[in-house]
Each structure stands twice: as structure tokens, then as C-alpha cells.
């Protein structure tokens, strides 16, 4: 764990739900400028770990550091402002709002923003730029609820970029999405990474993970069982056991 270049670190995070330990003593580091994958069988605690890191759930013990600073009580609003943001597994967007409104909700808003017009010119331009990149520009005035599932995933991905974050946590960005859309999402991830964005990705699509990521962290039953470059992790007996064994 080279602390110097780590953008996000967790130290012995533990979360119990009643008798079930969802995440146990989990320490990990996401290097600045990397694409790190978080994989593991269903129920291994990936989403819970995401929730702990982004302030949607509170750890029973352990610590989180973002950008070298300890995050004492993780809170999604504060973390978003600090440059850490996430998407959700089920493509959470605001279905009754138009695409442009979905995008502008996500702009950094100082307090005085409450008297600004809903969609300011600068926001609109930035939103258009991003929607263009994501191939959604034609639908800009459409209600988000009318998009296909894959398009909703793209939209959610696009919205979290409105604030120019430094680290994005993607929870299964390609789950339930058709192959063409998977390619599109992969292409976006690569392009953003090339521009310096750091990503932590939960993903089940192994070819995608192996081709895309610099580093793979494997969870099983809430414990980290492997951590390293894809080629290495792929052949780790513990990983093979977790996926193929009982």
C-alpha cells in the first residue's frame, strides 16, 4: 500500500448487519490516475464497501482517507464536493426530469445558487458537451424516464461528471446493458481515464475488467482475498476457488 499516491484508501473497514459481517477488515488503496476494479462473487460485499466509502452507510470500525485526508464521518454531499462521486447499480436518475435537468442538478452549487435559474448557460454548455460525448445529445429535452436502461446508465455516468470529479466509483456500469452499449461505456471510461480521472469499478464482466483495469481487488465474504495486476489475480488460486469453488 503506497500511501503517497493513493487517492482513496480504506483501513480495516468492517461492517456488520446483525450477525452477518458484510465487510471485514477491508484495507485497499486506489492509486491516483488508475482504473481499479473491485470484483467478487455475488454477496461478497462490493456494494456495501462502496456504500461505506461514499458515506451511504457507516462502518462499524476502520477508517477512510480521501486525498490523504481522513474522512471522519463520510457524507455523500461533502465527498461530492471534495471530488468523489459514484453511480449506482440500478441506474438511478430522476425519471420525471429532462436530461438537461438531470445534468444540472449535479453541478456544484454554492448557497446562493438557490436563486439562480434552473439551467444556467454555462451548465447547459457543459451538459451538452458531456451528453454529446455519451451520445445522448439528441435527447436533451426528453424526460429521463423515457430512456432505455442502457441509456439511463450512460446518463447517470454523465451526470456524475458534471462536477469534474477526481474519483468516480462505478457500481456495475455494464450490468444488464447490451454489447454495443458496453463498448460505448468502455470507450467512455478509457477516454476519461486518459484525461486523468481515477476510477474504482465494480464489475462482473471479466474480459472488460482484465482489459481495462490496472489493478484488481477481489472480495469474498467481505474479505479482501487478492489485490494486484489483472494477470496476477487471474491465476491466484484463492480467486479461482472463490469463483469456482463452493
Amino acid at each position: 500500500m503506497t500511501a503517497a499516491a493513493a487517492l482513496l484508501e480504506s483501513d480495516a473497514l468492517t461492517k456488520r448487519f446483525g450477525g452477518v459481517t458484510a465487510v471485514e477488515e477491508c484495507s485497499l488503496a486506489v492509486q491516483s490516475g488508475s482504473i481499479t476494479a473491485l470484483i467478487g462473487p455475488n454477496g461478497s460485499g462490493k456494494t456495501t464497501l462502496f456504500n461505506l466509502l461514499t458515506g451511504y452507510d457507516f462502518a462499524d470500525s476502520g477508517a477512510v482517507r480521501f486525498d490523504g485526508r481522513a474522512v471522519r464521518r463520510p457524507n455523500p454531499i461533502a465527498l461530492y464536493r471534495a471530488g468523489l462521486t459514484r453511480t449506482f447499480q440500478q441506474a438511478r436518475i430522476f425519471p420525471q426530469l429532462s436530461l438537461i435537468e438531470n445534468m444540472t442538478v449535479a453541478v456544484h452549487q454554492p448557497w446562493r445558487a438557490i436563486v439562480y435559474p434552473a439551467v444556467r448557460r454555462a451548465d447547459r454548455e457543459r451538459a451538452h458537451e458531456l451528453l454529446e460525448e455519451f451520445g445522448l445529445a439528441r435527447l436533451v429535452e426528453e424526460r429521463a424516464g423515457r430512456l432505455s436502461y442502457g441509456q439511463k446508465k450512460l446518463l447517470e455516468f454523465a451526470t456524475v461528471l458534471m462536477s469534474k470529479p477526481r474519483l468516480v466509483l462505478l457500481d456495475e456500469p455494464t450490468a444488464g446493458v447490451n454489447p454495443v452499449m458496453v463498448e460505448k461505456i468502455e470507450e467512455r471510461i478509457r477516454a476519461l481515464h486518459a484525461r486523468g480521472l481515477t476510477l474504482l469499478v465494480v464489475e462482473h464482466n471479466m474480459p472488460l475488467v482484465m482489459g481495462l483495469c490496472d489493478r484488481v481487488i477481489v472480495l469474498d465474504h467481505g474479505r479482501k482475498i487478492a489485490d494486484g495486476p489483472p494477470a496476477e489475480v487471474q491465476h491466484d488460486p484463492a480467486v479461482l476457488d472463490a469463483y469456482l469453488g463452493t
Binding site: P76, I77, R92, P95
Partner: peptide, 15 residues
Amino acid sequence: FAIREDEEKARGLGV
């Protein structure tokens, strides 16, 4: 409106 639709998501977007 964002809060009405999905408050948790809105929090995640810094609202």
C-alpha cells in the same frame, strides 16, 4: 424536484 424523485441520489450529487 430531484429530492422528490430520489433524495439519496440527490445527496450523491452534492445537493
